[in-house]
Amino acid sequence: MHPDWVSGLSGGLLIGFAASAYLLLNGRIMGASGILGGLIDLTGYENLLERLCFLLGLVLSPILAIQIAGGHDTQLTSNMYIIIASGLLVGIGTRLANGCTSGHGVCGISRLSFRGITATIVYLLCGVVSIIFFKNLLGLI
């Protein structure tokens, strides 16, 4: 067992509070891919500034957290081809499906949305398959 469940749970609660406040105050679903995607393809033209503010907070707040708590690591691969393939798959996939881990996973499951639950099961299964195939079998990652 990893001892990281405390930080996982407390970080998770903060994510839940953020999503709750966004819904109760602004009446919006906190989905990262939707907020960004609507900004990029301009389907969210009626509230571009609100989207931009949300993303600004999302990008900048970890800088603050690092100043206070320190320690940050992301072990993102340096294999350019894997980054490109993964980025395209995540970008296209989440927009086609209309949601990602935050939208379908957090906001969808908590609402008992059939689409959200189905999407989460599908991307979790495919994530597992992806690891089995690219890591365990091919040794690419």
């Binding site: 798959l89 495919c126 994530g127 992806s130």
Partner: peptide, 9 residues
């Protein structure tokens, strides 16, 4: 697609 990309990176 998202799941496959998520696992990759």
């Amino acid at each position: 697609m998202f799941g496959m990309g998520w696992g990759l990176s």
